[in-house]
Design a protein around this nucleic acid. Structure first.
Lengths: 359, 359
DNA sequence: TGGCGCTCCTGAAGCGCTTCAGTCATGCTG
DNA sequence: CAGCATGACTGAAGCGCTTCAGGAGCGCCA
């Protein structure tokens, strides 16, 4: 208590101790060229002995009207979110970019609304927000708008006045479906992550497939189903399982269901690599061989996809780039730039050993 | 540019518009009981039409001398950090606790020094810091001390005046080693994550085993080796592989090396489940059967350990509790509490199918 | 009717810092 | 030596908010 109560030294404390003005001490920290280096040394030295650790970040932010932080909004809680390495990679790219410019990162995990609580967003000390894969109309987005903060959106629908970076999800899954069709497959199963933020899980009904608020889920699912349909495979004949999230165990569960339909699908189209890994596992559980008995494709091309058993055919998206690009956009908006036209990152199909021609 | 320049409304703007004092508007947001609800409604309504999104968080923090945020310091970059689900789970527990009290989370990823850069720490807008598994003497810790911020340490050595939550790492690995000895094993290999923050990887020399700055690595390794030694297994006869991080692929690499020593170990002692999963994979690669040809133990008991193939014998630590407890401690320190005595969470050996008697 | 206790609202003093327009020597130029 | 640029430092005005000691008005009781 006692030592807590002894108020911490401030700029003034140091200024008084050295016998200079407060402005000078401030300059010692922020504009070394504004004072003689001898005086600067003296000031820093005094600060040290007084236990002054530099300008208070909050006061500094108020005065400069910039908190040097970017807020990162997630669609769900942290443990769910990070079970998919794709997010880690994106976030890492973002963090590095932002960190390189001495900005910090404020994490805002989501809840059942599919995004952080608005009150959290309104109070976050950040001067630009990044929305990662939030559902359409997440309340958090309104809160950002209300504050008038610049926004960069990753994997999300068009929002007025925001910067955007996204990936050709539809194109990607469409290519994967085509690949499988070319291999002669005719019976498919689709394994997707959440279509809506309501936490449901299970086979996806016809109506649930429409009006999907998560753009990414919508596009990936659409890319699969539309392409199959064009090739004459009726969507109604394609069982779709919706997992609560994108993780291996949930994927295994869903794949088990898909692989026990009759007729059994000869190809599983997954919305992410994690789900696909789960599918590989499920196949193993059922003593099915991949790709002899069933082909599996994923999406993301996380590092592990190259090493899984068998190595996974998947759609590659440039995850680290995505994060870096989002970081750059955030910094640019911070610097007062207008939101540039959306960055659309390309994808490409990486054929490995989890897919094979159907007999 | 134009609309950006139109300065945002402030408390005063609203106060003037409604014709009340600024204090009253402030009360409308923070102390509803201090004004008539009709006036409050009028104020909120006016604020809405003016586009005022509530008190500015930074100014608020300055005035209240509290930024309502907890800083989380990591030993490494985000992508590395999150490849281990253990961290996600801990962080999730922390985030939920903290979020429940309307505090936000500032993430500070580490670099090659084994922690965030001190300048980042000095400028972070947080009023309590949580250190997660930083190495001894990380510069970031000095920065925290310099600012006089309360600190809670997870998995880290004693630091003066800090709250602490840790786990019985030594006890845990010791129990695992005992389990294997009881099963009749005599040839062991150890697979650990980073012993030092220098990014090296490979077989661990004798001198590198001493003075390990990561407490967790030190204790887990110690628990394994000491216990084996007590049973008559010379440490020098136990090959140890150090992986750069705790992820599956790195584990696979290390395990491959361990499993190709002669004589081949009949039991692999891993410092984490991720590494153990990698070891299972490596065994599969080498057509070794687990546990017939080689037993494997992990540490953490992440959810997947129950579902791996085979299910993993591992040391359970209460990950979510760890995070929650850290969150509670952070909040407590924030409220002015003294650091209580360290919380030491128990561990227990969970025997599953990845270990078996040695013939 | 005077006094008391409410409820509702205000004035003003900060919170700790940045920044900008100066002030004041000092040295240099012509 | 006047004139002027230059370098080194300062004063003071904010940044947008919270909070606390009051003050005004009002109903109520004795």
């Amino acid at each position: 208590m006692d030592s807590d109560r002894r108020r911490r030294p401030t700029l003034d404390t140091v200024a008084a101790a050295v016998g200079v003005s407060r402005a000078t001490v401030s300059n010692a920290y922020n504009r070394p060229d504004q004072l003689s280096s001898s005086l600067r040394e003296r000031i820093l030295e005094t600060a040290r002995t007084l236990g002054y650790a530099g300008p208070d970040p909050v006061a500094r932010s108020l005065a400069t009207r910039s908190s040097a932080a970017v807020g990162f909004m997630l669609p769900q809680g942290l443990s769910g979110a990070f079970s998919d390495p794709a997010l880690s990679i994106v976030l890492d790219g973002l963090a590095q970019t932002v960190d390189g410019h001495d900005h910090s990162l404020v994490l805002m995990p989501g809840d059942s609304t599919g995004g952080p609580r608005p009150s959290i967003v309104s109070r976050a000390q950040a001067d630009v927000m990044v929305a990662y894969s939030l559902p359409d109309h997440a309340p958090a987005l309104d809160a950002v708008a209300a504050r008038g903060l610049p926004l960069v959106v990753i994997d999300q629908p068009i929002l007025p006045n925001s910067a955007r970076v996204e990936v050709q999800d539809y194109t990607g899954t469409s290519a994967a479906a085509t690949h499988l069709l070319d291999l002669g497959h005719t019976r498919f199963g689709v394994l997707t992550f959440a279509l809506r933020p309501d936490g449901l899980e299970g086979p996806v009904s016809h109506e649930r497939r429409s009006a999907v608020p998560f753009r990414v889920s919508r596009d990936r699912l659409g890319g699969y189903l539309d392409t199959l349909e064009k090739a004459g495979v009726k969507p109604d004949n394609v069982p779709v399982w919706e997992a609560r999230g994108s993780d291996r165990e949930l994927g295994r569960l869903g794949a088990r269901w898909l692989l026990t339909r009759t007729p059994r699908p000869s190809a599983l189209l997954c919305a992410s690599d994690q789900l696909a890994f789960g599918a590989l596992q499920a196949a193993r559980d059922l003593s099915l061989s991949v790709p002899a008995d069933v082909s599996v494709v994923g999406f993301d091309d996380v590092p592990e996809a190259a090493y899984s058993d068998p190595p996974l055919t998947t759609v590659r998206q440039p995850l680290a780039d995505k994060g870096r690009r989002a970081g750059e956009l955030a910094l640019k908006l911070l610097a007062g730039g207008r939101p540039p036209r959306p960055t659309r990152l390309g994808v490409s199909l990486v054929e490995r050993a989890s897919t094979a021609p159907w007999k």
